[in-house]
Design a protein around this nucleic acid. Structure first.
Length: 675
DNA sequence: TCGCTGGTAAACACTC
DNA sequence: CGAGTGTTTACCAGCG
């Protein structure tokens, strides 16, 4: 309950240090984030670790290729340099990781080309490498994707189970989830079809040549070090038994969607790891062949009695003949490598497609989430994806430390600056205690936000994106007499925000602290005792005057305006409609979207404000705040008063007999105090 | 880097 | 005496 921010920050810091430090793999989220700080990969935070892992694996594959290259150079040229083998490994292993973190493709075409051109790798090795590249990429992405969806689904289910609402709604939700699962399944099947079609693409004719390699199962969950060990063994075995024609490791994707038939819905949904989270298996060449004998159908290039090498489709009665065929027909040569490169490009296209589908799916998720949370509260801190955001929520979720609401709507204001984080749920919800200046900075009209998200705030334990001062003021202004006792303020908090129904001691202290601290809150002795009122002038003084006067701020606003240009149309449309929030739906169910929208809207307003102020007010339909003159102390004074004022009346009218409600919730604070 | 602001914790005094 | 209220201080974090 106490000092969560401190501890969390510390943990973050340590994570980051670890990440940038010695071990180059298994980066924790902190390190991961740091490594990705450049935002080069729009990858999802949730699965970031997995993705990074996958990339590391592939990077290591590349590394192994380099090692092999080195080894063969040494052997063939009989160079005197023996040491590099080891010395080379360490630094090389560390650098690539960071590279892998930033580059979606594991082995870039250029790298591949290099490897190919140097021709020091045996065809077998190259083939293995290529196959691994391709398969790993697809497999990992699919795995990650399904995993995420699964987690989100489960979270949804959880929330709805706790919601305890009418069966009707639950049925509806269930229906939605079914549809959603079907969507998942369809996507999965789509992916398979893509893959199959890819494999059947005849890009080049195959030239008979050297024997190719049977593929061996390679576990996905493999730790990089283990993988490396495996590769060591394999490569050493290779050098030792080069003449045996025996093989090397590669991927077994049979259990994945790549080559297997479509898994059942349940298997897909309920156990996304089943097929992909294999265990580490260190293979010697001998075991490889064994593994294929034991699992004759476990070759990703073999299925239904047909060779699935792209464009081949040769019929092989049994696995042995398939192997023979594979070795004879699909050896590595220029054309097949080119084929692989093309395949890689196709795969990249697929990745793009996958990204789009993910986006669509995310939109669905958001939509469903909206509906599910709208009616009734979710007992748990509402977070669309908190369970998936392993980064912080898992590690930092302390039962008592409510303050870091996973979905802290404070964060949603920032995604604007976080780029197109489509699926990145974390971007939508900055999890954890990260404190942000939110609404006040963005001048989000608190009353309108509260009005729009009223139900949500009431039911979801989401921290309202407003400062205590703003909330207190709002509470006071909503009261008929514009004055409240402390207890009434408390009650307003608990009534309006589920978030403030817990940790009462904390936030109440904060309320008192704010009341005392800010001049804008005036204590007035009254019959009832003491009541608190708001000195608007002081309050407005307190609020950022930046926009009004500061040129740099204006500049920022304008830049942000430009930044939000793509949204401009929609936002302006919504602003034109004024009352009907374009975002109503989103904001009701998903505060993050709502607040994000508000933030953007407000930023746009601010930007427009200046242009308008220069041109004369041309902002129709919007509250006077847009028409404010920069010089006049503040658009702010007008903002809350006029933009919020009227709205607050609405809110008040809707649900405000404050004192009556106060009674309703009178007991709650007490209970919460017990917590 | 620094100053401002906000959030949290805590100590303390006062009142009921 | 305990709870509530109010004040003050300190520390930390985010942000410009």
């Amino acid at each position: 309950m106490m000092q969560e921010s401190g501890t969390e920050t510390k943990s973050n810091g340590s994570a980051i240090q670890n990440g940038s430090g010695g071990s180059n793999h298994l980066l924790e989220c902190g390190g991961l984030r740091e490594g990705r700080s450049n935002g080069e990969t729009p990858a999802v935070d949730i699965g970031a670790a997995d993705l990074a892992h996958a990339q590391q694996q592939q990077q290591q594959a590349l590394q192994v290729a380099r090692q092999l290259l080195l080894q063969q150079q040494q052997q063939q040229q009989v160079s005197g340099l023996k040491s590099p083998k080891r010395n080379d490994k360490q630094p090389a292993l560390q650098v690539p990781v960071s590279v892998a973190m930033m580059t979606p493709q594991v082995i870039t075409p250029q790298q591949m080309q290099q490897i190919l051109q140097q021709q020091v790798l045996s065809p077998q090795q190259l083939q293995v490498l290529l196959q691994q590249q391709q398969a790993l990429m697809l497999q990992q992405q699919l795995q990650e994707f399904y995993k995420k969806q699964q987690e989100q689904l489960q979270l949804q289910l959880l929330q709805q189970q706790h919601a305890g609402k009418q069966p009707k709604e639950q049925q509806q939700v269930a229906t939605q989830q079914l549809a959603f699962q079907q969507q998942l399944l369809q996507m999965q099947q789509l992916q398979q079809q893509h893959l199959l079609s890819l494999q059947r693409q005849g890009l080049l004719t195959i030239q008979p040549g050297q024997p190719a390699l049977p593929l061996q199962p390679l576990a996905q969950g493999m730790i990089p070090t283990e993988l490396q060990q495996l590769w060591k063994e394999v490569t050493s075995a290779h050098t030792a038994e080069e003449t045996t024609g025996n093989n090397h490791s590669s991927l077994d994707l049979t259990t994945t969607c790549v080559s297997s038939s479509a898994p059942s819905k349940t298997s897909l949904i309920m156990n996304p790891h089943a097929s992909t989270n294999g265990q580490l298996s260190v293979h010697t060449p001998k075991r490889e062949s064994l593994s294929h004998e034991e699992h004759p159908h476990s070759h990703p290039l073999y299925g239904h009695g047909v060779c699935k090498w792209p464009g081949c489709e040769a019929v092989c009665e049994d696995f042995q003949s398939f192997l023979k065929h594979l070795n004879s027909e699909h050896a590595l040569d220029d054309r097949s490598t080119a084929q692989c490169r093309v395949q890689m490009q196709v795969v990249q296209q697929l990745e793009l497609q996958l990204a789009k589908d993910k986006e669509r799916l995310q939109a669905m998720m958001t939509h469903l989430h909206v509906k599910s949370t709208e009616p009734k509260a979710a007992p748990q801190p509402l977070n669309l994806v908190s369970s998936v955001t392993l980064s912080k929520s898992a590690s930092e979720a302390s039962p008592q430390s409510l303050p870091h609401t996973p979905t802290t709507p404070t964060a949603p204001l920032t995604p604007v600056t976080q780029g197109p984080s489509v699926i990145t749920t974390t971007s939508m919800h900055t999890v954890g205690p990260i404190r942000r200046r939110y609404s006040d900075k963005y001048n989000v009209p608190i009353s309108s936000d509260i009005a729009q998200n009223q139900e949500f705030y009431k039911n979801a334990e989401v921290r309202p994106p407003f400062t205590y001062a703003s909330l207190i003021r709002q509470a006071i202004l909503e009261s008929p007499e514009k004055q409240l006792t402390l207890n009434e303020i408390y009650n307003w908090f608990t009534r309006m925000f589920a978030y403030f129904r817990r940790n009462a001691a904390t936030w109440k202290n904060a309320v008192r602290h704010n009341l005392s601290l800010h001049k804008c809150f005036v204590r007035v002795e009254n019959v009832k005792g003491a009541v608190w009122t708001v000195d608007e002038v002081e309050f407005q003084k307190r609020r950022p005057q930046k926009i009004s006067g500061n040129p740099s701020l204006i500049k920022n606003m304008q830049s942000s305006h430009a930044y939000c240009t793509p949204l401009n149309a929609a936002l302006q449309a919504s602003m034109a409609e004024n009352s009907i929030p374009l975002y109503t739906t989103a904001s009701m169910g998903n505060p993050t979207l709502g607040n994000l929208a508000s933030a953007i809207r407000e930023e746009l307003n601010g930007a427009m404000e200046h242009t308008n102020s220069n041109e004369s007010d041309s902002s129709p339909g919007r509250s006077p705040m847009q028409a404010v003159h920069p010089v006049h102390v503040k658009e702010e004074p007008l903002d809350p008063e006029e933009a919020e004022g009227p709205l607050s009346l609405v809110t008040t009218a809707n649900h405000s007999p404050d004192f009556d409600h106060d009674r309703d919730y009178e007991d709650e604070p007490v209970n919460e105090d017990m917590e």
